[in-house]
Design a protein around this nucleic acid. Structure first.
Lengths: 123, 123, 123, 123
DNA sequence: GTGGTCTAGACCACG
DNA sequence: GTGGTCTAGACCACT
């Protein structure tokens, strides 16, 4: 869980936030469950606590968790609502990409082919 | 053409390079056509010449243009090959997104719906 | 190490990149090792940090190193793979030169002689 | 003859000079033969006369041709001596490359293989 | 005129 | 502290 890839272009705090969100989506942390403390996570991942803190702040701003001073961080929404929000984002990105592909002259049949065929021919 | 968005997260030199690549793909600049000079573009866009230079260097490393000292920058590949490369990239990203959507429980029918329906219902 | 020759026709950033690649090839920097920081190298070599930065960017585009914002630059490939790539380049250049020599009338015996004899007679 | 490749990294004046030297080596221009005039060559190649002039200056500094004010440019040395000088240069470069290959751990057998085998295995 | 390199100094994002 | 981007201004090589 929570694999950090230093070669990834994304900043570490973003990878941590995405990893935790994943755990929430997949039900590892249920609604109202308490997350590990900042210090604990920092120690486990050998990461600067500031970075973990920033990941939590990002998740809080997205409404995935909420923090209570002196007590810790807790999952605010249940997995399904988070999942729905993510799916909506993905749908948005998909449509943007398809729009770009059309602008380059690809037709819908070809696009569907790229997506759903196992072995894809170079377009 | 060549709209620079300073609020865009992407650096300016990348936006400029992408913009020029777009013009090549859409045939505004044919193969072997000469591009505007570094200084001219810099003046038009009110951008430092060094930044334009960097955009050109990026395009040259991608094989889209080639530069001749004392003469200028020229389109090296014809639009179609560049377009094919871009479509391949888009196909890759599409498949990654679809894979993510499936991991979140979406079925192919729903995904197809998001992509090809005009008005999309929140998933 | 990392000798910069200002009379060399090659630009400084290229010399720096080649020098670092050399160190990687010869095992001075192992895979995943951290390189000196941009500012530190700049100070040591009395070179502008921007120039060092450019050398690092070149090495990253070649896949020799990878950089993490806020942490530093790290060797990505192990020395052997980089060495193999360099040897392939050298083989290419060798063949080109031999081809040119043959076109000028030199036979293989003479060419072998130039290469492997310690003291070479003017051809 | 005298093919100019604008995509070549070498400056044009250098390509022109190399091309003329080639013609001398291969006997197209014998010793004391008169070369085409600067203006004529510039017109034929659609190149700035200044560039041709510079190519001639380069050849003169190498001793390949000599120029007589008001009369034109003439081949100074015979093809063989020019060829010998070029071969000596090539031998130098060959030895430098072989030295580099050895420093990277290649043995002489492998190097000979790269050079003289038709189909070369990746080193 | 063209592209290419380098310096100096500033600012931002990340850890 | 780290890397990354941008500006300003200078200098060089080439056409």
């Amino acid at each position: 869980m929570l694999n950090i890839d230093y070669r990834d272009a994304r900043p570490i705090y973003e990878q941590v936030a995405a990893g935790i969100e994943d755990l929430v989506v997949h039900g590892v942390y249920a609604a109202e469950a308490q997350l590990p403390s900042v210090r604990q996570l920092a120690a486990e991942l050998s990461i600067n606590p500031n970075t973990i803190q920033r990941a939590f702040a990002l998740l809080e701003s997205k409404g995935v968790i909420y923090s209570v001073k002196g007590r810790g961080n807790f999952v605010s929404a249940d997995g399904t609502s988070v999942r729905d929000r993510r799916l909506a984002e993905i749908a948005l990105q998909l449509r943007a990409l398809v729009k770009a592909a059309r602008a380059l002259g690809a037709d819908d049949a070809a696009i569907t082919g790229w997506i759903f065929e196992k072995e894809v021919e170079a377009p």
